[in-house]
Every structure is written in structure tokens, then in C-alpha cells.
């Protein structure tokens, strides 16, 4: 990973995944610090992600992840501390197991579990955060928008050709 700071003059606009919406649940103890660090270093990142800080990723309800997908968010990243290094006595491990269990469900119905990115412990430092976000955003960029999924729910052929 090379630093793409302003000084280096190597600014690269990342267009991959443009138009996609990605939500990042970031633990305030790890990933949010990484995000802050990436900001301080002015690393250029795709502008598709929105961070929602959480006290611990154990706060992230699987229901909220499902809700995100079904309301049209293309990717959800859950970024927390290292497993075994949680500030809250291992709360993130249980949470990790729970989210891990969500993945087969997402696969079952064709949402694709790759839209749910879980990362534990890689994001504490800025370059790790940046790398994770960038690769996730580009992965989501390569996938069809999740709205294609919900749109497939309206399958009737309308003589007037209107689509929701």
C-alpha cells in the first residue's frame, strides 16, 4: 500500500463502485481511530462509504445489517477490535460469531455474504483501515447494486413499461 498523500502528487480518484452506498460500523476503540488516522494522513479513499461510530461492534444488530441491505445499501462493513483484544471483555467475539451466522443467510437468499465485510483488528492503524475500506469498496463496486436484488421483486411485465 502506497500512501497517496497530497504531497506525493499522486492523487488518484477512485471511481470504482461509484454510486454504491456503503455503511461502515466502526468501533470507537479501533476502526474509528484508524479512520481518523487515515484522515490525518489525507489518504485518498473512495467516497462511497459512510461511517457510523459504535461503542463496540457488539452493538451492531444483525437486524440493522439486514435493514441496510433491504433499504438499498450495497455494502456493510463491521470493523472492530482484534478478537481477544476487545475493550469490552470479548464482547466482539460473540458479535463476530453472530454476524458470521448471518452470512449463510445472506447467501441463501442471494444477497451475497460478500456484501457484509467483517474485520476484526485490522483497522486500528490508518493504513490498515484505508486498505480494508479500499478493497471492500472496490469489491462492492464490482458487484451489482443491491437494489437490483429488491428490484427483481417486481417481476410483472407492465404493458406501460413502468418500473418501480
Amino acid at each position: 500500500m502506497t500512501d497517496r498523500t497530497e504531497d506525493s502528487g499522486n492523487i488518484q480518484v477512485v471511481l470504482e463502485g461509484a454510486g454504491r452506498k456503503i455503511v461502515v460500523f466502526a468501533c470507537t476503540w479501533c476502526a474509528l481511530i484508524g479512520a481518523d488516522g487515515a484522515g490525518k494522513k489525507r489518504i485518498s479513499l473512495p467516497a462511497t462509504f459512510r461511517v457510523i461510530p459504535v461503542e463496540c461492534i457488539s452493538r451492531v444488530e444483525a437486524d440493522a445489517v439486514i435493514r441496510a441491505f433491504t433499504s438499498g445499501i450495497d455494502g456493510v462493513a463491521v470493523m472492530g477490535c482484534h478478537l481477544g483484544g476487545c475493550r469490552h471483555n470479548g464482547a466482539n467475539l460473540r458479535s463476530a460469531r453472530k454476524l458470521e451466522l448471518l452470512k449463510p443467510l445472506l447467501d441463501t437468499v442471494g444477497i451475497d455474504s460478500r456484501r457484509l465485510f467483517t474485520s476484526y483488528g485490522t483497522a486500528h492503524e490508518y493504513h490498515q483501515f484505508a486498505q480494508a475500506i479500499e478493497s471492500f469498496c472496490s469489491q462492492i463496486g464490482e458487484m451489482p447494486p443491491v437494489s437490483a436484488w429488491s428490484r427483481s421483486f417486481v417481476r410483472a411485465m407492465s404493458a406501460r413499461g413502468e418500473n418501480e
Binding site: 484522515g39 489525507r42 467516497a47
Partner: peptide, 17 residues
């Protein structure tokens, strides 16, 4: 946070930012 989390990391993409 619209500085570290936005203007600084998306400095090349003012519209998206």
C-alpha cells in the same frame, strides 16, 4: 466529522465529498 472523515480523504472528489 466532515474533515478527517470526508474533506481530507476525498480531496480529489469534491462532488462526491
Amino acid at each position: 466529522d466532515i474533515r478527517e472523515g470526508c474533506s481530507w480523504i476525498h480531496h480529489g472528489q469534491p462532488r462526491e465529498a
